[in-house]
Structure formats: structure tokens, C-alpha cells
């Protein structure tokens, strides 16, 4: 694909445009994250509207499993640290270490998804499904959508760990930028969880 688009050279793909101080991908990911804020913002607003309109609302900690979710919170925060380390090492030209940290981040995502699946299975075992109540409906919808975002990030990390890493040898700066961009996305996904965890489990 790259060689196909390569005939037309798009400026500022790698180096920042002087007057805006941004390269294209970085502006792009910030705009994308702005739209993601609107997506999750709409869901949080829905949660507030349904909850305030409901005569009774269960305590999250009585219905859900706080311990695995707490572990998951730490796993996700850890992964946000490792993704920065990956980028920092690549910036320093340390490809080997950078790659290891990409791998660790991917592993954190995997652990998160595993624990999430375990939590879901516990809920199902208790006979709690999305159709059970509005609380479980919003719980499964929001954590499910968040899970899809984690999965999306993991696919991107897996790509950069595998076939995507070839770019390091041809275009070092661009590869580093790509890790920065997926890192920004990963922080956002992390941040969504930071909001989801107290709202659903602790309130």
C-alpha cells in the first residue's frame, strides 16, 4: 500500500509544520480523540439520565466484582507507563528496549481483557445479563465498548510488534511517531476506564 500512495508526497507526514507545530498524524489523533470524548460523553450522559430517572439504583460494589476491577485499573495504568517508555526508548534510538515495552503494553492489554472476561463470566454465572436491569445494561454496554477500544489498541500494538516494526529500519522517525500516536490513543482508553471504574463500581 505504501508504495501506491508514495507517488504523491504528502507534506508534514513526519516532521511538524512550522506554523502549527504539529505533524499530520498527531493532529489527526487529537481530533479523533475529541470525537471519542463525545462518544463516551454521550454514554455517560445517558447513564446519568437513566440513573437519576430511576426509582432505585443498585450499589456497584454489591453487584459487581471490585477486586478484579481494581487489579485491572492498575494493569491499565501500568500499560500507560510502558507505552510511554516504549516511545521514549525509540526516541533515544533504542529499538530493542522500545520493542520490549511495546510487547509489555500488549501483554497488559491482554491481562486486562482476560480479567474482564473473568468478571463477565462471574456476572453471567450470577444470572446477570444486559437484559436483567438498566444497571447491567449500561454496565455491559459501556465496559463492552471500552473493551472493544482496548482490543483495537492491542491489534495496533501487535501490528507494530510484528510486521509494522519493519518501518524502523526504513523510516525511524515515522515509526516513533506512530508509537506516539497509538500511545495517545492508549492513554485515552486508559482515561475512559479511570472514569468508568468509580462510576460503575464504587458509586
Amino acid at each position: 500500500m505504501d508504495h501506491a500512495a508514495g507517488h504523491v508526497e504528502i507534506p508534514y507526514t513526519v516532521s511538524p509544520r512550522p506554523d502549527t507545530g504539529l505533524y499530520n498524524g498527531k493532529l489527526g489523533i487529537w481530533l479523533f480523540l475529541a470525537s471519542e470524548v463525545m462518544l463516551f460523553g454521550a454514554l455517560f450522559s445517558s447513564l446519568i439520565l437513566i440513573r437519576t430517572g430511576s426509582p432505585s439504583w443498585p450499589h456497584g460494589w454489591e453487584e459487581l466484582h471490585v477486586v478484579p476491577a481494581t487489579i485491572n485499573t492498575f494493569v491499565l495504568i501500568m500499560s500507560s507507563v510502558t507505552v510511554v517508555l516504549a516511545w521514549a526508548n525509540l526516541r533515544l534510538g533504542n529499538f530493542k528496549l522500545g520493542r520490549i515495552f511495546i510487547g509489555v503494553t500488549l501483554l497488559c492489554g491482554l491481562v486486562f481483557m482476560g480479567i474482564k472476561a473473568y468478571e463477565y463470566s462471574l456476572s453471567f454465572a450470577h444470572g446477570h445479563y444486559p437484559s436483567t436491569s438498566d444497571f447491567f445494561a449500561i454496565y455491559f454496554t459501556m465496559t463492552g465498548l471500552h473493551g472493544l477500544h482496548v482490543l483495537g489498541g492491542m491489534i495496533v500494538f501487535a501490528y507494530f510488534l510484528g510486521p509494522g516494526s519493519k518501518m524502523w529500519h526504513t523510516d525511524r522517525a515515522r515509526f516513533t511517531n506512530r508509537i506516539e500516536i497509538v500511545g495517545l490513543y492508549w492513554h485515552f482508553v486508559d482515561l475512559v476506564w479511570i472514569f468508568l471504574f468509580p462510576t460503575l463500581y464504587l458509586l
Binding site: 470525537s35 471519542e36 463525545m38 462518544l39 463516551f40 460523553g41 454521550a42 454514554l43 445517558s46 445479563y129 444486559p130 437484559s131 438498566d134 445494561a137 455491559f140 454496554t141 465498548l145
Partner: peptide, 19 residues
């Protein structure tokens, strides 16, 4: 995106029988 959220919620209503 808010319509996307709404579409997801309505899809859940129709497919996963939430309300």
C-alpha cells in the same frame, strides 16, 4: 458520536433486550 452512542444503545435494546 452521540448518535453513534444512541445507535449502539438502540442496537442493544433490539439485540440484547436491554431497555
Amino acid at each position: 458520536p452521540p448518535l453513534e452512542a444512541a445507535a449502539v444503545l438502540q442496537l442493544m435494546d433490539r439485540v440484547a433486550h436491554t431497555s
